[in-house]
Every structure is written in C-alpha cells, then in structure tokens.
Nucleic acid binder design. Structure first.
Lengths: 273, 273
DNA sequence: TCTTGATGCTATGTATACATTCTTTAAAAG
DNA sequence: CTTTTAAAGAATGTATACATAGCATCAAGA
C-alpha cells in the first residue's frame, strides 16, 4: 500500500497545516523580516505546498496576529513594540483572571481540581533543587503551560477559552514566553518561586470561592511575565533562546525607544505612519 | 469607462469580502441552521463567487467565531447557549474595562476626549425626549457603537483594540447587540439612562486618572447588556428585530433551559456531548 | 429482518492556468 | 539633476479542473 512512510506523514497532515507551521517557523526564526511583504511564490517554494494552501495558511496567520494585511494586497510580517508585547501579556493576564474568577464563582468539584494540584506538586518538586538546572527549566515550561491550560478550562466557558487561546497564540504573550530567556539569571529562580506561589494562591482562592482574589492573583501573575520580558530584554545574553525576537521593534529601527511613555500629548503619533 | 455602475460595485469589492458578507447574512438570518454542514457548492450558487473566495470567506468566518470546523472537513454553523452569549458579553466588558483603565492610567489629552464628550452630549440630547421613539433607538445604537469604538481607541493599545474588535464581532456580544430587541419595553428607557450614566462616569474617571473606577464601571456597563439579553429572551415579542436569534440554542433543542446554574456538581456535564 | 460489506457518488482539498492590478524601472522633459 | 509618465514585469485575486476521501445507499448473507 504505502511505499514510503515519509510520504505517509506528508499526506496525513493537510498541506494547509504544513504550510502554516512552516511559515510560522520562518517568521519566528527571523527568516522573514517584519514589514517585509511575503511573496506567495517564495512561500510555495520553501513550504513545498501549492499556492492555494499557502494562501489559506497566510489568512490563518493573519487572524493569529503574526501577519498584517497590506491594503494593496498580500501580507507582511507584523512588527511589535515592547509595549505591544507587555500589553499582550497584560491582556492575557486579564483574561486568565476572568477565567479564574469564573471558576471560583461557579464552583469547581474536588475531582476537577485534582489535576491542577498534581501539576502544582510537580512544579514544587522541580523547585526543590536549587539552583535549578536547565533541564528543570525546560520541564517547568511544560508544566507551567499545562497548569495554565487546566486553569483556563476550569472556567467552563467555551468563548473565554477560545479567546485565551487566541491571546496566547502570540509566542511572547504565552504563559512561558520569556522564562527560558533568563534561565541563567539569579533573579529567575526567585521569579519561579513567586510564580509558583501565585499558582498555589489561585487554587486556594478557587477552592474557597474567592472570585476577586483568584482574579487579582492571576493578573499579578501575568505581570511577573512582564517583568521577565523586561529582564530578558535588558540582559541580552541568552536572548537567542527565545523565538520571535526578530519581531520586536528595537531602538535602532526607529528614532527613540523609551519615548513611548511620553507620547501622551503628541496627538496621533505612536501609530505607524 | 464604466458601462454599468452595478458592475462597478462588483469589482471594487473583492469576491472574498462579498462572499463573506453574503454568508454572514445567511447565517445571521437563519438561512443556514446551526449544526448544519455548509455546502461549498451551494454557497457558490448563493453568493455568486467562485469556490476559492468562498473558501477564504469560510476560513475567515471560522476565525470570527460564527463557524466551526468539522474534523472530517468543511464547516458548520456554530450554536450558542444563553450562557455562551452572556459570557461573551462579560468578556467584552472585561476587555473594555481594561481599555478604560489603560486610558485612565496612561492619561488622555483634552483634545482626545472631545469626540467622546460630543458623543455623550448627542446621546443626552436623544434621551431628553421621553418616551423614546423607534428612530431615536436606532440613532442611539449608532451613537453607542461610536462611543465604544472611541473609548477603545483611547487605550492606545493596538493588541487590545484588536482583541476587543474580535470579541465584538459576534453580533450578540457587540455593545448594542440587544438594545433594539426591547425598544418597546418600559424598562428599556431606564436601561438606556443607566447606560448613559455609565458613559458619563467612565469619561469622568478617565479624566481624573482613576483607573480602577474606569475599569469597574465598564464592566458593570457590560452587565447591563447581559440584562438586556435576559429581558429580550424573556419578552419574545420583538425578538425578530435582532439578528442571530437563530444561533441561540433554545430550550426546545435540549432538555432543560435554566438548569445551567445547577451544573456545578455534575462533573463534566455542560459540555456538548 | 438485521447487519455487514461493497460500490458509487458527492464534497472537500489541492493544483494550476488566467486576468487584473500594483509596483518598479527607465526614459524623457522641464 | 530632478521629476513625471509610461511601459513592462511580477504578484495577487479568481476560476476551474482533478484527485482523494468520506458518506450513503443498496444488496447479500446470516
């Protein structure tokens, strides 16, 4: 029947998905630079798919937020400022806060809370060894992602789950976006411990049906990720560990960098001209 | 140059957009029923576009939340429970609350606040006449939408603006989703007045840089929309005024309707099996 | 009569050909 | 030397043809 098992993989996954994954990798790895128009024909060559699935993939990546439609046609890679990223993280935190509040207010059975607690215990086990090894960091990222996914599902709200997934699609906005970047820094260990405390508190709050507390702690939890971002951008030593670095508008691209906080009275400036 | 002005419209707008609008109308008007698989060929006939733009439109409508991908291929119209809708509204309110807080914390110049105040004054003028005519209701919907759009932009946060737009894309989650449905009810007049008070307060809060107050009032403002929803569903007299009614899972479709509030201890129930 | 299997059809996923539009480059005029 | 216009080329949007996979129906056997 099947001559080559390699071909088998090619056919089991649709060309559209294959093109989407390939293009996303190219964007995050920096092969496609921000602001640059994406050539469909070039994408056809690099992905191996035909123009139709490439086109579908481009549409999906635009909805995902990685691409921007060009008025005259086609797509370009989106560029993000530092504030765009911190806003995206705060946005995710707000959404996760809402999910935690929903979970607390609507009640969660002990059986549903169990996987969360197992996840919590696993991270506790990981943090017992200090200093934390690079492998432990990697495990932490996986467990942290799992914890956030489980917490989100606890809200029992399909629309909210959907929106959180969309908000976490941006790689730098995801719960573990900037954890790996500063794995070598001494502050990182403390931040991990504080983050785990947040995890513990949100479970406690949900268990006791304290909606406001659950919401507040998840918001604060996201601000920890913002701190991670700042830390990672300041200590650019291990910056190669994180993807999507190429998407960040650096100070060299435009005039000033930290003038962002002062553009309150400058009219409509701040939008890309 | 242009022989037929009718053709002119056909060419100025892309076939993809045309198909998207036509399909959305069909979905919201109920021509396509929830759970039903959408036939591409049928869509080609009804929209007049070819299969390629129809396909693009289907992908975009899925990202928009109106369609759901079928694992075996193709798309079906999504169905929404009453709680899905109220959650979507609360979600939008949370996002708008964040936008208001951003605006308040980061500061807004008087010149930027001016259009908001004009909008406020226009609604004030509208509400002066009691009882409010059906035309006034219609004007209110437009002004209300404008107010919310202006407020969102005040956040100066492209990622947040994008997410709010996405959250408001569902017709029943948009700021004025259920206003028209109960235009004849006496409670409607009061709700409009209360809503306008919220508008006034949020502007005041932003002006005085009271972030928490601005956020809280926008959340409460969205809960007014939830009340509108409940009111509209209970008084089904003028239900034909609002679109997307066909998407709501009614009590006749499944077992009970108001058992939604009691499914806390029932394990994994509540999810569509 | 019910169940299972096979065959045929239909619908989706993919590929490619075609037309229109936008962009870029070059040449000419001011 | 600069600017504007025109032409050519390339890239996107659209349409259609083709293959494959799923689904339904019908028939045969238990």
């Amino acid at each position: 029947m099947k001559a080559a098992p390699e071909r088998e993989v090619d056919r089991s996954v649709s060309q559209t998905v294959k093109a989407q994954l390939a293009l996303r990798d190219q964007i995050l790895s920096g092969s496609l630079r921000p602001g640059e128009r994406i050539s469909e024909l070039q994408a056809v060559e690099t992905t191996g798919a035909s123009r139709t699935p490439v086109r579908m993939a481009l549409v999906r990546l635009e909805e995902e937020g990685l691409l921007e439609a060009i008025p005259s046609g086609g797509f370009m890679v989106k560029a993000f400022s530092e504030r765009d990223i911190s806003d995206s993280i705060e946005l995710r935190g707000t959404l996760e806060g809402l999910a935690a509040r929903f979970a607390a207010e609507r009640g969660v059975s002990a059986r549903e809370l169990e996987p969360l607690k197992e996840c919590l215990a696993a991270i506790d086990e990981l943090l017992r060894q200090i200093p934390i090894s690079i492998e432990a960091f990697s495990s932490y990222v996986a467990l942290n992602a799992r914890f956030h996914a489980l917490l989100t599902e606890l809200s029992r709200s399909p629309p909210l789950i959907r929106q959180i997934d969309r908000a976490s699609a941006l790689p730098f906005a995801s719960p573990s976006g900037f954890v790996m970047a500063q794995s070598a820094l001494p502050e990182a260990q403390q931040i991990l411990i504080i983050g785990q405390e947040h995890h513990r508190v949100v479970i406690d709050a949900i268990e006791n049906r304290e909606g406001a507390r659950a919401e507040a702690v998840m918001r604060e939890h996201a601000r920890l990720a913002v701190r991670n971002l700042r830390l990672a951008l300041r200590n650019r030593t291990h910056l190669d560990l994180l993807p999507a670095l190429a998407l960040i508008k650096t100070a060299t691209d435009r005039g000033q960098c930290h003038a962002l906080h002062r553009d309150l009275d400058s009219g409509d400036a701040g939008v890309d001209p």
